[in-house]
Design a protein around this nucleic acid. Sequence first.
DNA 1: ATGGTTTTTACTGCGTC
DNA 2: GACGCGGTAAAAACCAT
Length: 321
Amino acid sequence: MSNRNTRTRTNEQEQTEEQTDASLDCPECSGTVVADDEHGETVCTDCGLVIEEDSVDRGPEWRAFDAKEKDEKSRVGAPTTNMMHDKGLSTNIDWRDKDAYGNALSGKQRKKMQRLRKWNERFRTRDSKERNLKQALGEIDRMASAVGLPENVRETASVIYRRALDENLLPGRSIEGVSTASVYAAARQAGVPRSLDEITDVSRVEKSEIARTYRYVVRELGLEVAPADPESYVPRFASSLGLSEESERRARELLQNAKEKGVHSGKSPVGLAAAAVYAAALLTNEKTTQAAVSEVADISEVTIRNRYHELLEAEQDIPIA
DNA sequence: ATGGTTTTTACTGCGTC
DNA sequence: GACGCGGTAAAAACCAT
């Protein structure tokens, strides 16, 4: 079986990296900083902070394509990646003190072999973690930019991922899954949530797995993520629909009012937000259709209808300015 | 696994441009 | 007649148990 993971180093190193990757220190944690030329980034190996800000963002498609391609090439079988951390490419040193012909080694040689074994093992595991992280960071970056999440969220996601890695949450879970979960969690923590569906669209793993992994990671890491606030979806929806500041504000008011009245419990935050945006557009006489809102929010029109009735009902006793 | 709740799907009727 | 909107019933998805 031929190893297809040959160094087909695609000529992507044409990125003129103007910085020296030599031992810089991370401003955050003073860890080691490593240039990740595959992703055109400079990353701290300790906290996952992305140092290089000038890195070219080539957009989701390009990266997605490339990452997928790369992944497909580098994978031999689906779940083996995690088990064979180095994909079987690293050096193996036998534990027996025999040479290639089966003869016993001299004492001096034995000592040497022991030293070699020790270091080989060290490099190997260190290397595996780094590879893992490298790939994951690439994925995180790809997904984050695909759904338009800002830099700081990517950093948070990276940190989450790194913690998961450190706490050995990876075995049994895919890198992609955990990366995706990290992005999802980071977005929510940062107050710029993306719905599970949106995340699923840009991820390579299934929704159910993302959800499962997300729960797991959150639990194991003791992450505190408040249930998504409907309001945090409003700006995004409003701007994709080209609505005014005014209606955006109205949408917020509607939601706040709904919150006070407890109308919202148990309902999906996204649906609420969508409904609020629609209702607000109506109140400010701006042209939008339920279909349009449904489109950008990825929520059915029926749900929008139901919610926005509830919202307006809750608003009844409040004087309409 | 089950049952209760929410969301979606599909369809239908109504008014308006 | 197409479009936007509203309602309904049944299916599907989700969640706690």
